[in-house]
Simulated scan of single mutants.
Amino acid sequence: MSATFRIIIVGGGIAGLAAAVALRDKQREITVFEQASQLNEIGAGISLQPNASKIVEDWWGLKDALQQRKSAVDQGARVVYHRQDLQDVLREAATGTDRPGCPVMIRTSSRVISCDVDAGAVTLDDGSTATADLVIAADGIKSKMRRFVLGRDQNAIPTGISAYRFMIPMEELEAIAEFTQFINPRDEYTTMVLCHDHRLVMGPVRKGEAYSVVALVPDETLHEDSSSTSWTSHGEKSKMLGSFSDLPEWLLKPFRNVSSLGLWQLRDLEPLETWINGRCILIGDAAHAMLPTQGQGASQAIEDAEALSAFFQDIQCRPSPHDVHCRLQDAFASRHDRATLIQQYSRQQAKPATEKDSVKIKMDPEEFTSFNYTYNGAKDWLSKVQSKVQRSNNA
């Protein structure tokens, strides 16, 4: 029997690559299966809150690598990265030879279609199979792995809102006097523009080299079909401009020369009763997809990866299926309630899009911010939860 701890990660996005970085170690064979032909992100900003940025920058030692790419702008309590920069840094940290542990293998054009969660076996669309001691499902909001963990389908539900995402070079934007007389694009904060039921959320990324725009549109006024969109879907500029035709020309002018834009349908996922089954665990959007109102989606995926690292930290050889499952139970116990509360609060802040939601989170924004930012890792969180339960039982 091999002494190597074998890990399969399904999905090569932020969650999957974060898990690869967190779990990389000696005597570990980690393979990431990504269905796309290459790891690309359509340009847009992505924020990491302090609960996650300290994991990526300090605990994983990636601060210098991110700064060298001029990828981030510090906007107070959060750091905004270009999505492609963050993904590239995670990929290089996973696969590079200058970090401790065995380099991770990433297999693109590798679409997983089924999983035996007890055997730790996945089947690809070309008929080939792969087995591991641990399977991590990081295949996003439209996860195909979710059904194998839950034993049933549970799909994300459209919220009725879609979002275009695109980048504008800062030099190009600053040359448009009509725009800069109203907005200084180098100001390190997020600018929001409302027009009827449409919304623009904009801000600098890459140390001010580019300007990120997210344009939110109700589906009923969307000029194209968003029913099958994902993070890697492309939108059409003419149709985007049509959706925002009521905006003033000074605001639309920078958008007219955009060469590439993504289209993302905002979807909501009901909290899952479990993320684990056998040797498999769901993480990131596959486990707890949430609306972007609190900017915690990527941060929670980073927390998931840190939790796996924490509970498998001492494994330096091949673990038994029972050991794997027990550790997954600990990881789930440390993450589920916290991620679910953040998921529900993000939904609550998106009213009226989800106004039928009956769960009410009784925290004001300041309390919720403290709840988010004071996180200090999965083991610390689980210890506090267990202590609280013990005090309650002794009362």
Results as ranks from 00 to 15, higher is better:
87 Q>A: 06
38 Q>N: 12
80 V>M: 10
290 M>K: 01
112 V>E: 08
105 M>F: 04
103 P>N: 02
73 V>A: 08
10 V>I: 15
19 A>N: 09
4 T>K: 03
147 R>S: 15
244 F>Y: 14
268 D>N: 10
166 F>D: 09
74 D>M: 14
116 D>K: 07
370 S>N: 13
65 A>Q: 05
149 V>N: 07
296 Q>C: 01
333 A>W: 08
357 D>V: 04
269 L>N: 05
383 S>E: 11
379 K>I: 15
185 P>Y: 02
317 C>W: 07
172 E>H: 14
373 Y>R: 13
180 T>E: 09
143 S>C: 09
372 N>S: 13
45 G>H: 05
15 A>T: 02
330 D>C: 13
163 A>H: 00
28 R>H: 11
172 E>S: 15
131 T>L: 05
121 A>K: 15
203 G>N: 01
261 L>H: 07
102 C>E: 13
301 A>S: 06
260 S>T: 13
212 S>K: 02
141 I>S: 02
189 Y>C: 04
367 E>L: 12
126 D>T: 09
275 W>G: 02
176 I>M: 14
146 R>V: 04
147 R>V: 08
29 E>K: 05
243 S>L: 09
22 A>W: 09
19 A>Y: 07
139 D>Q: 07
354 T>G: 11
375 Y>W: 15
143 S>T: 07
159 T>W: 08
367 E>I: 06
313 Q>I: 00
178 E>V: 11
329 Q>I: 08
309 S>G: 11
306 E>G: 06
67 Q>D: 05
272 L>D: 03
278 G>I: 03
110 S>P: 02
56 V>L: 01
26 K>T: 12
210 A>K: 06
23 L>V: 11
383 S>F: 00
176 I>T: 09
297 G>Q: 00
388 K>R: 14
244 F>T: 12
178 E>K: 13
118 D>S: 06
221 T>P: 00
148 F>S: 05
90 L>F: 00
11 G>F: 01
166 F>W: 04
288 H>P: 02
267 R>G: 01
179 F>T: 02
203 G>T: 01
243 S>Q: 10
155 N>T: 14
33 F>R: 03
204 P>W: 00
121 A>E: 15
193 V>L: 10
98 D>C: 10
5 F>S: 10
80 V>H: 02
24 R>E: 08
346 S>E: 08
278 G>L: 03
273 E>H: 14
175 A>M: 11
187 D>T: 10
20 A>Q: 07
119 A>N: 12
352 P>N: 03
109 S>F: 03
276 I>W: 09
154 Q>G: 02
351 K>F: 13
351 K>M: 12
23 L>H: 10
84 Q>N: 06
96 G>R: 01
98 D>M: 11
182 F>I: 13
108 T>G: 05
323 D>Y: 04
236 E>F: 11
128 S>Q: 15
319 P>W: 02
196 H>C: 03
361 I>Q: 04
388 K>G: 13
394 N>W: 03
354 T>N: 13
116 D>W: 05
246 D>P: 00
266 L>H: 08
184 N>G: 01
39 L>A: 10
100 P>C: 08
270 E>V: 09
258 V>D: 03
172 E>G: 12
108 T>K: 04
281 I>C: 12
256 R>Q: 15
156 A>W: 01
302 I>Q: 10
332 F>Q: 15
210 A>D: 14
108 T>D: 04
208 G>F: 00
159 T>F: 09
119 A>V: 12
96 G>M: 04
209 E>I: 03
111 R>A: 08
